[in-house]
Simulated assay, not measured.
Amino acid sequence: MFSLSFIASTISSKLNPVLHPDFIFNRTRTGKRFHQLCNYVHEFADDIIEARRNILETDHEETEYEYTDFLDIVLMAQDENGVGLTDKEIRAEVDTFLFAGHDTTSSAISWAIYTLGQYPEIQEQIYGEVMQVVGTKNVEPDHLSKLKYMLFFIKEVMRMYSIVPVIGRSLKEPLTIDGVTLPAGALIEINIHTMNHNPAVWSDHEDFRPDRFSESEPERDPFSFIPFSAGTRNCIGQNFALNELKVVLSRLVQAFRIELDTSHEVVPQPKLVMRPKNGIKVFLRSR
């Protein structure tokens, strides 16, 4: 599968003007490796899609269950003329969920676990809420909206560690900011990590305080905190990601008390996704 270091090297190669033309890049070792990995990913997604399509076509009655998943919806989607998505369009949607949804959520879970170990008192507050709302049972859908302090905690984790540190946008039309006009087609880099540590917006921005997202905090500009981007190009899976985090963390604190390995230094390293440079090490103590 892809590694972040390989992706970074690929991007660096493409920024080299000599390697910018595809007919040159494709003949380099990096280019060949890039296409090899792309083909592997596409075959993996195609196999998933084909298997599900066969189920829908040959066993349609048994698949009419109460809840349909993302892939069912994509495969059955049609426009007003009854035309569905092409195979390539379906694969693009699957690729988005496989990678954009997996890498970012796993990073957020890692930083959340690290932060629980950092702040035992916050961990116990979350544990208390989970026991009050969920108890020792499995987490059910109606529990999720009741885990309010955990939502504050997750948001503060994403503010502190900026799971996606930078996002890019291409301007469709000229944009004027502070008297400077940027032309249409310009690539804009939005530094989310800097926004999340802007002292003009976040008081004591280096302090970890979940309560800064409570209703008692003063209102902020809605675009001052955009861990899932914002506007028409925001992340379509943000509610799913937040619920996934709630479920994983709830089950974790139900069973274990998390303690940091204080001999191991954790260094945030911003890449495509915020990663700990040397990993994260914790001890899980049974409750």
Rank of each mutant, 00 (worst) to 15 (best):
Leu75Thr: 09
Glu66Tyr: 08
Ile49Gly: 13
Leu56Cys: 10
Asp87Tyr: 05
Phe99Gln: 06
Gly101Met: 10
Ala100Gly: 11
Leu75Tyr: 15
Asn26Ser: 15
Tyr40Ser: 13
Thr105Asn: 04
Thr86Glu: 13
Asp59Glu: 07
Ala92Asp: 11
Thr58Asn: 08
Asp46Tyr: 14
Gly84Val: 07
Lys32Gly: 04
Arg91Pro: 01
Leu85Ala: 12
Glu61Val: 13
Ala45Tyr: 14
Ile48Asp: 01
Glu57Ile: 06
Tyr40Met: 12
Tyr40Phe: 09
Gly84Glu: 03
Glu93Asp: 06
Leu56Met: 10
Glu62Leu: 12
Tyr67Phe: 11
Phe23Pro: 01
Asp47Ser: 13
Glu93Met: 02
Asn81Val: 02
Phe25Ile: 10
Phe99Pro: 04
Asp79His: 00
Glu80Met: 00
Asp79Asn: 00
Thr96Val: 05
Val83His: 07
Phe34Thr: 11
Asp46Trp: 15
Glu57Phe: 11
Asp69Ala: 13
Thr63Gln: 10
Phe23Asn: 06
Gly84Ile: 07
Ala108Asn: 07
Asp46Glu: 11
Ala100His: 10
Gln36Asn: 05
Tyr65Ile: 09
Ala77Glu: 04
Phe34Gln: 09
Glu89Asn: 09
Tyr65Val: 07
Met76Gly: 09
Gly84Phe: 10
Asp95Lys: 00
Ser107Tyr: 00
Val94Thr: 15
Thr63Ala: 14
Glu64Phe: 11
Asn54Cys: 06
Leu37Trp: 00
Ile90Ala: 12
Asn26Lys: 10
Leu71Arg: 10
Cys38Met: 08
Ile90Tyr: 11
Leu37Lys: 02
Glu89Met: 10
Gly31Trp: 00
Leu37Asn: 04
Thr96Cys: 06
Gly31Glu: 14
Ala45Ile: 09
Ile90Lys: 14
Thr105Ala: 06
Ala45Glu: 12
Ala51Trp: 07
His60Gly: 03
Cys38Pro: 01
His60Pro: 02
Lys32Gln: 09
Pro21Trp: 10
Ala77Tyr: 02
Val41Pro: 08
Glu64Asn: 14
Phe70Ala: 03
Asp47Glu: 08
Asp46Gly: 08
Glu61His: 12
Asp46Asn: 10
Arg29Thr: 15
Ile73Cys: 14
Lys32Ser: 04
Ile90Pro: 11
Gln78Val: 01
His60Phe: 07
His42Cys: 08
Glu66Ala: 15
Ile73Glu: 15
Arg52Phe: 12
Asn26Trp: 01
Leu37Ala: 07
Arg33Gly: 12
Gln78Met: 03
Asp95Ile: 02
Phe25Tyr: 13
His60Val: 02
Phe44Val: 00
